[in-house]
């Protein structure tokens, strides 16, 4: 039987292996396995690695992830986190409230931030355990979306769309600072042992941007960012990307994560042989769906996208919510194993 890493490499080279790789994005469920609070879990590299190890032993899926959530990126911008018992932390406030403050915004090196050091430690430990057999993922916020987290979504949209003069004055600085941080942070994760990194770019998705805006503002930035990252990059829309499908091969990403509004069959056609599609089971509905319903949904996605490789079964969005019960995760993985089989036909 191929290892999870071999399975991934096969699909990334647009070939059919024994079955599709299955990646349920479980950033939080490891804490349940260890019986610790999310706050403790998220801020301890040993626990993150141990949690990922127990999860893969339990479900036998095909990847481990060293990152607890992407909100932590903002710790480097001096922001504070507020933790919750059943979900990712939120920001305690914004780093800056006015555009001109960008000039004096200080960004720390990730290695100086204790929580980010723990993330790197988690990746190192995972690499010790899994390098060469199970793909190890890192993640962070993409540069077009990062400003929405240090100045707020509304201020960011206002600068982009409603303040041409201010935009002229400040946009380059916002984007350069964000890109430099993102590239540095992703490269540190790769050095620590990540096989690939996911950059999450919700503000650039087709949920928020028009095609022309994506082309004019987000695309050039994404391309440069990806070219500066020293390893394979997975581009995550967080929202939809389907409307931009034909543009995605230009980004330089090995794979793209789609959301549940995206038509998988159509995206697969546009990207066949070029970029692997990842997705797109409704993560929020996983809480309430029955195992039977989950199987149906997984089957539909597999039918639409598995042929010829270039497909990874995953949930949409950045995580499987904490409240999704174990039996539903089990149903998701098992359905993937059943309906993602390639009938032994290696192309």
């Amino acid at each position: 039987m191929p290892t999870p890493l071999e399975r991934l490499m096969t699909t990334l080279s647009h070939q059919e292996g024994d079955r599709i790789p299955i990646f349920p994005v479980m950033l939080q469920h490891g804490a349940k396995e260890l019986g610790v609070s999310l706050e403790e879990y998220f801020t301890n590299g040993e626990m993150l690695a141990e949690g990922q190890t127990r999860l893969i032993e339990k479900y036998e899926h095909d990847a481990v992830i060293g990152v607890p959530h992407v909100v932590e990126d903002l710790l480097a911008f001096g922001q504070k986190l507020v933790y919750f018992p059943n979900g990712a932390p939120v920001l305690g406030g914004m780093a800056i409230s006015r555009y001109h403050q960008i000039d004096s915004l200080e960004v720390k090196d990730p290695t100086e931030v204790p929580e980010l050091r723990e993330t790197l430690r988690a990746i190192e430990l995972l690499a010790k355990r899994f390098k060469g057999t199970v793909p190890i993922f890192g993640a962070g916020i993409a540069p077009f979306s990062l400003p929405s987290m240090f100045i707020g979504t509304e201020k960011w949209l206002q600068l982009l769309f409603d303040e041409p003069d201010l935009r002229e004055q400040y946009i380059t600085r916002f984007l350069e600072l964000s890109m430099d941080f993102c590239v540095n942070w992703m490269n540190l994760q790769i050095e620590a042992g990540a096989d690939a990194v996911v950059i999450a770019d919700g503000m650039a998705s087709a949920t928020i941007l028009l095609r022309e805006q994506f082309q004019a503002w987000a695309m050039p930035l994404i391309k440069i960012t990806i070219s500066r990252i020293n390893g394979p990059v997975v581009y995550e829309g967080v929202g939809s990307l389907g409307q931009f499908a034909d543009l995605l091969p230009e980004l330089g990403a090995v794979a793209v994560i789609l959301d549940r509004h995206d038509d998988m069959a159509q995206c697969k056609r546009a990207l066949q042989g070029k970029v692997t599609v990842v997705g797109n089971i409704n993560n929020i509905a996983l809480i309430d769906w029955t195992p039977e319903r989950i199987e149906q949904e997984v089957k539909a996605v597999c039918d639409a996208a598995k042929h010829g490789g270039g497909f990874v079964l995953a949930n949409q969005g950045p995580e499987i919510p904490y409240d999704v019960p174990d039996e539903n995760i089990r149903a998701f993985v098992e359905a993937g194993k059943k309906w993602g089989r390639h009938n032994g036909a290696v192309v």
Binding site: L157, F161, D162, A206, T207, I208, L209, L210, Q213, H261
Partner: peptide
């Protein structure tokens, strides 16, 4: 019908 996106609605 998802013919407009958030950026447009916002402006």
């Amino acid at each position: 019908n998802r013919e407009v996106v958030v950026a447009q609605i916002y402006v």
